[in-house]
Every structure is written in C-alpha cells, then in structure tokens.
Design a protein around this nucleic acid. Structure first.
Lengths: 211, 211
DNA sequence: GTCTATAGGTGGATAGAC
DNA sequence: GTCTATCCACCTATAGAC
C-alpha cells in the first residue's frame, strides 16, 4: 500500500517500479512502462538511476527495508512463546495484505536467484526472520510448552510457510476456496491467518486439550 | 528429471523449454537461448511451433500432464486418513526432488497469471489436488481421528503449503539451514518432507500422545 | 530537472535454398 | 526437416536543447 502520494519524481519512479516489477517481472517491464506508470518522461529515469538494473536493485532495497522494519517489531517482546507464534503468524497475514506487491517482488527475486540479479541481502534478511522464530520455538521447548521431538529450524520453516504459501499461490488458493482466479479476498486471508496460527500451535504444542 | 535423451528435435526443444522457462521466465528467455539449449537451429523452432507463446503453452501442458499423472496416483487408495496424509506429504517432496523445474515453472505461471498467458487449466489441476486432500481430511474428521474445529479447506491448504514453500523459497531455506544460497540438498528436502508430514498430522490429529 | 530526438543493439519472426 | 540470411519492431541508453 502506497501510503501517501509521492512528492518527488524519484519517488514516483520507485513507486511505479514496485508495482511494475511485481506485476510483470524485470525483463517484461520496459523503461517506457515505468515512465508511463510514474507519469514522467522516460529519459528522466536515467537522470535518477544509472540503468534499469540499478533501478531494480534500488527497488528491492526499498522494499526490503519496509519488510525488515515490520518483521523486527514482531518477536522481540518477551511474551509467552505460544502467544508470540500466534502474533507472528497473524501479523504476517496483515503485512502481506497491506503490502500486496511485496510477496510477488520477493518471490520473483528468489526465482531469479540463479540468474543475474542476485540480491543476497534480501535472502539473508528473510533468513534472519527464521532465526528469530527458531529462538521462540526453542524457548517454548525449553519451557516444556512445545514438543521437543521436532527440529526447531524445520518447525520455523513450516510455521512461516503456512501464510507465505497462501499469498504466493493466490490464483490456486482462490479457485480452491471458490473465490475464483483473482484469488482470495482480504477478509479471507485474514481468516486464514487465524486458522494458520492455530494450525501451527496445534502442531507445536505438547499434548493439547482434546479439540 | 529428463529420463531419456530426447529423440526428435521437437522433444529436444520442449525439453530445453522446460529448463529455460523455469530458470529465466518467459520474457527473459529468447528464441536463440532455446535453440542453443536444445542444440538446434533457431529457425527450426518456428517449424514446430507457431510462435514463442505457443511453445510456452505447449511446455506448460507437457509439465501439467506429468504432474497430474503423479498426483492422481497418490490419494485414491483407501488407506486410513492419517496414513494418507503422511504419504501425500512425503510423495510431494519426492516429486519435487525428481522434477526440480516443475515448481519453478508453475510458480512463474501463477505469478504471471494476472498478465498475458493465463493457462487456467494448470490452476484448476492444482486446485483439484486440494479437493482430494480436503476429502481425506473430512474423512478423518468423520472418523473422529482429526479435530473438527478446523475448516477442512484451510487445513488442506496448510498441509500442502509445508513442502511447497520449502521448495519455492529454496535460497532462503538454504541460508536458514546453513546449506548456502544454492538451497537445501535433496537429502535435506527428504528429511524435511518427513518432518512436514509429522507437523501436519500433529496439527490435524485430535489430542495426541504427549510428545 | 525535464524534454526531444535518435543512435545502437537485440529479439521475434519470415523467405527461401537445400 | 534443417539451415542461411535478413527484415522489422522495439528496447535501452545517450546527446544535447531548454
């Protein structure tokens, strides 16, 4: 979600770049697409950015910043591990609803990773989220709250995957849920977020109440 | 995995197309890339396929066939629901190890789905897997084996997501597990598959044995 | 900072010989 | 069926006026 209308041309370009690169990918997006979307002259892009590649990287950095700001706030409170997990999963859903272009952009970057542009900073950033989540799970195991027969790293990946896949596979999920090819509504994503939090906790917790 | 060396030029082209489109996507892959990868003359592609777009769709159909062959065999045995879930998740991992290009290709197609080529047959195919899985979960609930406070559809999505995300986010997962940017090894993917099966079952089952 | 014009390169696609 | 040669459109990037 672009909170405010961009003030400078540079911001307008970066903003357009998020939308275009997320929607069409790097190669399918032309300089003229970007200029039109940002409503500026196409030569102006070369005034602000060295070339298309540089603009792309700049866009990624921009988005990564937003992501890490949001992720950082999530887990470092010292709430109980189970509550921390619940919050993490639900806020994951909220973030992805509020920033619909981000998952597409990051996903494209991951797919491209074998190729040219390989912004490993992004990858490390996301991997960092896992580490934090891992620690929460370990804490839960130490406190006897979570079962300890699961590898905390694998459990962390599984926990993140629930919501991540939901937004990644939008069209498929939309069809599966009867919302059509355009994908699930925000309300449904939120509802799924709550389900996912419970699903993760049920998997993690040691001998729960019978349903 | 390409089982045998392709005999005809047409097969060689289709085979190269799977690799190239999976690695670089539709627009970044050039006709000359494809010809080089298939080791044929670039004009020959237009003898076998009307244009690049057609070749792309043909490639998708080809891959979808493989996928549906494999998916179809999985769930229609009448084993117990918990065993069916376990098998499904583990075979999901095996399929993705054996066909490393398939997830990338399908994922790209989903990303592109808002755009031009929209091969909704693929989407329906995958959505069909959900339906089958849903039925298994419903059966488990009816038999009192699974908790019935979870929506079967959401539970099916969550179950699929565990392994799907793992292969989608290869570089991130690789870094998180200490295997580096090239992603997890096959052995680790298999190990994760076993973890994921247990994770899903733990989430689904009603009041399990304490750890 | 913004615009016009254009150079230079590449990619998709075809014609036509063999 | 396969290859050579080539056309045309379009895309990135720059030069230079304002």
């Amino acid at each position: 979600m672009t909170a405010t209308a961009p003030t400078t041309s540079r911001d307008a370009i970066l903003d357009a770049a998020i939308r275009c690169f997320a929607a069409k990918g790097f190669s399918a997006t032309t300089i003229k697409d970007l200029a039109a979307e940002a409503d500026v002259n196409s030569a102006l892009l070369y005034y602000y950015f060295a070339d298309k590649e540089t603009l792309y990287r700049e866009t990624l950095r921009h988005v990564a910043q937003r992501l890490s700001d949001s992720a950082g706030r999530r887990l470092d409170d010292d709430v109980a591990p189970d509550e921390a997990i619940r919050r993490f999963v639900e806020q994951q859903a909220e973030f992805l609803i509020a920033n619909p272009h981000v998952p597409r952009l990051l996903l494209r970057e991951m797919l491209e990773h074998t190729g040219r542009h390989a912004e490993s900073a992004i990858v490390s950033l996301i991997a960092g989220v896992f580490t934090t989540l891992c620690d929460v799970i370990r804490r839960g195991q130490a406190e006897g709250l979570f079962r300890d027969d699961a590898d905390p790293k694998y459990a962390a990946i599984s926990t993140v995957s629930l919501v991540a896949y939901f937004v990644i596979a939008r069209p498929v999920v939309g069809v599966a849920l009867g919302d059509g090819l355009t994908g699930p509504t925000d309300a449904r994503t939120r509802e799924y977020g709550r389900h996912a939090a419970e699903f993760a906790l049920a998997a993690l917790q040691r001998g729960r109440r019978g349903q």
